[in-house]
Design a protein around this nucleic acid. Structure first.
Lengths: 348, 348
DNA sequence: GTTAGCACTCGATTCAAGTGAGTGCTAACA
DNA sequence: TGTTAGCACTCACTTGAATCGAGTGCTAAC
């Protein structure tokens, strides 16, 4: 059975209508609303074929049809026309995430909020992380009589600090001196590269403070590890309750349950991390309790190997075209903001 | 009409039963389940009195009674018996929030998660903030050719950094020298105290770098301001959907809407910030869309004037006694962890 | 190949009757 | 005077039958 032009037009009509109304679409509705130049009876015949081919489903014997996951897949891959963002949307986007943002976690919060506001779906976003970033600067500062502060700046301008408690801290000038040593030895290396050779060099250079060295190494390691941990932000969960597909409170609860687990969020975002933009429809995603949801993910970059992912979660009946355009726009936006951020902070 | 002993016992029975079952309580239920030694008819008479006094309500003419806000108030203030935490609960609490926590935002996340897991309500928690903290150490580090890093440690060991972009950064030793100057002048002062005199002193001491001074001052100000901004964490929103009072999806939606606004959360927590432990029942809290909820807040301290607030949100029919004991236990726990954290970090 | 017409299906809505938990009132009782 | 048994009454909720209507599949005619 061939998927001729008319079948495609009918499938498109069904999907468009169902996305809009969330009601199964009947042949008569299509005949009236979409001018295909044929009668409802003809459309019925075509629909029967489309069902046989697996693109649409009948929730029960005498109802209209709804798109199947396969139908949405065809739609997303071939039928859907890309929407352009309106001027209003673009400037709204910029206004929302560019004001006043100097810290990465605020930026994430604001971005997630902006997306869920514009799309009315739920947004999750992971902070940019990079495996194997190199150390740009590593220094020690005197803090008080019993502790010093380790400050590490990586090449993509992530800055982390760690308080090192050390019984009795060396005097200020010595702390600086140690810091300078550390910096000389470790600058330009990633955490994975801290091997015996480097440690031996540190031990000889910092011989005077040998007992402190393990403290310092432990602090470096834990700091770099923390920098590699994925931080996830979410916004717009309330939107879920607005969709008729979740008017059954048990379904809503299951979804909320899933979305409250960080692991689940990370999994969802990970699934999309290779491709630039990925659409997972219904059961295509691996999270069991989200078989009725689609997830659209996009990766944003910050420098060469530092990246994060944005995901939008909604019912399979989601406005793919709009979501994709918002997502594309937002990726560009966030990449720009991140560039500005890592080039040097605002207000200075 | 006097609130005699029997009336109180009946009220208590109604509240206990209603908290447990979420169903209006009838006179016959009370007569059977709670051995008051009188018949249901007598109880009916007493209930009629209690209703007249405003402690209980009848949802409709021929149903049982439910407690009113006033009834809960009496219960919380006078009738409720304090529950002790079981040994299991205590150790569970400690296990959950003590492992692996070296950063304050993780601590907050974990605490909120632990509380909502133990109570099955929704938890919000604000990070500790302090107005007018003093600067303990303030330093500059060279970062790269075009920027330096400002690091500020406050007396309660909050550490913040800020990248200062400055066209062409001075050479390393000069940066250190500037940092030392800054530290000499500003150490021990709070942001509010940075006045003309101090600025003048900085200007004369840093005369050589006068054009950079505004950059530095702006960075200090923005950093200290950020440190004073309230950060709020939330966990367990999904629990809301489990309560029959929110089986009406519109009610749930309204509540979710409210809880997604950071302002609302801050308001809720602020309302409780004076007292150690505060119970706001139903319409006692000022958030319009939360008239059916009770909010229990407790303040935790970290040093003298640094504090944060934990709030638990649930339906007015909440298990006040359990929530209060969990909250008290958790405040002690978190204060201990914070003490350890600010004394010096673990793992070092 | 397309269409009009028709019988049929089946979820959703409506309505009336029935059920039961609970009340208020009254009269009898200790 | 306080307590209780008994009874009529209320009202949300359940149940089941009738009806509605959107939609289908099939057939016969164009």
């Amino acid at each position: 059975m061939a998927l001729n032009d008319r079948k495609i037009r009918i499938l498109q009509a069904i999907i468009n209508d169902y996305i809009e109304t969330a009601e199964p679409v009947g042949s008569r509705t299509i005949a009236k609303k979409y001018n295909l130049g044929v009668s409802s009876a003809t459309i019925r015949n075509e629909m029967s074929d489309l069902e046989e081919m697996g693109f649409i489903l009948q929730p029960h014997a005498s109802s209209g049809r709804i798109p199947s996951d396969l139908g949405y897949r065809l739609y997303v891959d071939h039928l859907m026309q890309k929407k352009e963002l309106s001027y209003e949307e673009q400037s709204m986007m910029q206004a929302m995430i560019s004001r006043n943002i100097s810290q990465i976690d605020y930026l994430m919060e604001e971005t997630a909020k902006a997306i869920s506001m514009m799309t009315n779906y739920t947004t999750i976003i992971s902070e940019p992380i990079s495996r194997g970033t190199r150390i740009k600067q590593i220094r020690l500062l005197p803090l008080d009589s019993g502790s010093v502060l380790l400050v590490i700046a990586t090449e993509n301008n992530f800055i982390k600090n760690h308080v090192i408690k050390m019984g009795e801290a060396p005097e200020d000038m010595k702390v600086f001196e140690m810091g300078r040593c550390l910096n000389n030895v470790l600058q330009g290396h990633s955490i994975g590269e801290i091997n015996r050779d480097l440690i031996a060099r540190l031990q000889s250079e910092l011989a005077e403070y040998a007992p402190l060295l393990p403290h310092i190494l432990a602090a470096i390691e834990s700091t770099m590890r923390a920098a590699e941990k994925v931080q996830v932000h979410m916004s717009g969960t309330k939107n879920i309750l607005a969709f008729p597909e979740f008017s059954d409170i048990e379904k809503a609860r299951a979804l909320f349950q899933a979305l409250e687990e960080k692991d689940v969020l990370v999994t969802l975002l990970e699934e999309g991390k290779d491709n630039g933009l990925q659409v997972l429809i219904g059961s295509e995603n691996t999270v069991q309790s989200m078989k009725d949801c689609s997830v659209i993910t996009a990766t944003y970059k910050m420098g060469d190997d530092t990246r994060g992912t944005i995901g939008i979660v909604g019912p399979t009946r989601m406005d793919y075209s709009q979501v994709i355009s918002v997502l594309n726009g937002m990726v560009q936006n966030i990449e720009k903001v991140l560039r500005d951020l890592s080039d040097g902070n605002k207000g200075s």
